[in-house]
Design a protein around this nucleic acid. Structure first.
Lengths: 232, 232
DNA sequence: CACTTTGTGATTGGATCCAATCTACAGTTA
DNA sequence: TAACTGTAGATTGGATCCAATCACAAAGTG
């Protein structure tokens, strides 16, 4: 009679190592712009902030280095990386290439369930837009794109694209704040979803390409403007 | 008159942290097949082997995890990852896409110096083939491909492709050993270099694509055969 | 006999300590 | 004054220690 169920494990508790949690938190703070490009990340300071020893911090910094957000130099510590504009533009080119490939492969496999998920995520994203919940933009934006690519069943490609999106996220957030591009993004995402619901690969894939590349162009223009403004 | 030169720094000394050296060595050992898929990597054992404490080992393992060669699980340690064949095939598709793009961008910029470097690397690679220096195959193979893509001036793409090559390397080595594909690779690399020297993008890019995809197909066939053999 | 429980050895995770290295500034000398 | 030198403080790198967790086997229980 003892209810020895097969362990539903629905309520997965934190089961995450300290370095992982730290890396996640620090990544979020970098993406949110709390740490700017070139800022040094001092182990001792961070350790004190989170009330842990320096060791998990070191491992977290290694993880961030692997994802390209910080650069470690021996005996000099970690600094937030900065990308020259050519490399930012390159990242958007890469996204365009890979994400279009993913979408083209996903569309034939996409189910009604998949589309429902995408719609739900998009709703969350739009909500975040309207509530100006900047911290969630990057995550939800990727979540939406990702949901469209999932049916392609391409785990490796998805992993690569996720890594690239991580890099572009912090700049996108910047751009959405600087320029009023939020409205554009909202319209484009809706249209993209509509085309996917219609299974219209002929139009959806080129539309995605334009969506990504124009976001890249706008971002670069915004960065240029800001540089010019800073110089003055 | 004091010769205060701008610091030539030609004689860069080892300046590499222990974790980095460890990661490099372990990566080599995994790629060479000394550690097979699924093998556990015990921190204490490795630390003893290299006569260092467990700490740099931990950081090295984190690096390997980031490059996808091992999987870390909390309190259970590190095991060498294994890829299902669909994902291996996906990696070759990715390589074909990205490397062809790189080559197409590189060809217009390629200089005589670049070609000389490629030729030199290819000579080393062929030497390694003939001396059956299996340990150098993967590195030199990538070195050769990389030398052709360098003029494209696409650091981010190159970094992504390098990561993917790291994953495929260990399987390629396997394939070259199992099948007699060394001769094929040699011929194909020479032809590829010849087409690049002729700046013949029209033919070089599709040739590269075939080169990569056929390598992938051969590898998958070899793996399948070995599975069949193991079952018997 | 099957199943749970408990306990032990092995292994990883985290904290603290010491050594190595870098940075900055002060003092010295030409 | 300008450049070099050396020393002190800060910061990272590595080693050792202790705690937490896991795997597996042996013993207990229905």
């Amino acid at each position: 009679m003892s209810p020895r169920l097969p362990t539903p494990k629905a309520h997965r508790i934190k089961r995450q190592s300290i370095p992982d949690s730290l890396a996640e938190s620090l990544r979020e703070r970098i993406l949110n712009g709390e740490f700017r490009e070139g800022d040094p990340l001092v182990q001792e300071t961070i350790a004190a902030e989170y009330d842990v020893s320096r060791m998990p911090v070191r491992e977290a910094l290694r993880q961030l280095e692997a994802s390209g957000l910080v650069k470690l130099t021996t005996h000099k510590g970690a600094v937030v990386t900065s990308l020259p504009s050519e490399q930012i533009s390159e990242l958007f080119d890469l996204r365009a290439t890979l994400e279009c490939d993913l979408l083209a492969r996903a569309l034939p496999n996409i189910t009604a369930d998949d589309l429902a998920t995408s719609r739900a995520v998009l709703a969350q994203l739009e909500d975040a837009y309207h509530r100006e919940d900047v911290g969630s933009w990057g995550r939800l934006n990727w979540e939406f794109h990702r949901s469209l690519y999932l049916p392609a069943d391409r785990v490796q490609t998805l992993a690569v694209v996720q890594g690239i999106n991580l890099q572009t996220d912090r700049y996108i957030r910047l751009q959405l704040l600087l320029t009023g591009a939020v409205a554009d993004a909202e319209v484009e995402h809706r249209e993209l979803l509509r085309l996917c619901e219609a299974r219209d690969a002929e139009h959806a894939v080129p539309y995605l390409k334009r969506h990504i590349l124009s976001a890249g162009r706008n971002l670069l223009a915004a960065i240029k403007d800001r540089h010019a403004a800073n110089a003055a």
